[in-house]
Amino acid sequence: MTPTDERELLLRRVRSAVGKHGAEAGGAAPAEGARNPLAEDERLDLFERMFLSAGGVIFRGPMEKVMSDLGEILRTEGVAALFFPEDDASAREIAEALVPFGPFHLTTGAEVRGGSPAVTAGFRSAEAGIAETGTVVETSAGGRTLLPGLLADVHVSLLPASSVVERMDEALAALAAGPPRNISFLSGPSKSADIEQTLAVGAHGPRKVIVLLV
């Protein structure tokens, strides 16, 4: 039996099963009801509230103050190495500016992927933010790497305030026409409660996720 035959048989089985129900079958589901959108500052406040409740850290405000606070967090986390995508100018700028704030050195994604044991912070610009869930959206569109939010111990995501939408629907609508291979919604740190229902962070991915709302 060739794979195509199997497929055709499955579809035939399903078609016949579906047909047995006829008139009682479900019609098209109703669309989402209309909503009054939030104003921009409300939207950003909601994003901040939800991102914090998901266990994230968020910085809004003048960059100089942010740099010193961020540097302190990274030092507290024991971060030694900073990395960013080669083609991400904003991420590079922030990472380089942070070097004086700690004993940090710059490293590359390739080294991290090679299993470097140094505690690392990965920097990356996010494509979008979703306020209702406190989510940062990062995708592989345009050949961009996802490693900073994947392999690092601490992830710093640079999120332009203008790209924060209120609802998931809006973020997905923008991507659905030609979806990149990977769309990642990041809402807080990597965590697990698999042992005695006790929350532990850094199960596989970053134990801390920091958003710089720029």
Binding site: M50, S53, A54, P85, E132, T133, G134, T135, S140, G142, G143, R144, T145, L146, L147, L172, L175, P179, P180, R181, N182, I183, S184, F185, L186, S187, G188, P189, S190, K191, A193, G205
Partner: peptide
């Protein structure tokens, strides 16, 4: 499932890595 607003990660995976993709 757990009372979370959203799980930490949602991955929407579409096809193979595309030309020029960094990974996948």
């Amino acid at each position: 499932a757990s009372g979370q607003i959203l799980s930490s990660y949602v991955s929407i995976l579409t096809g193979t890595r595309q030309a020029g993709d960094a990974e996948g």
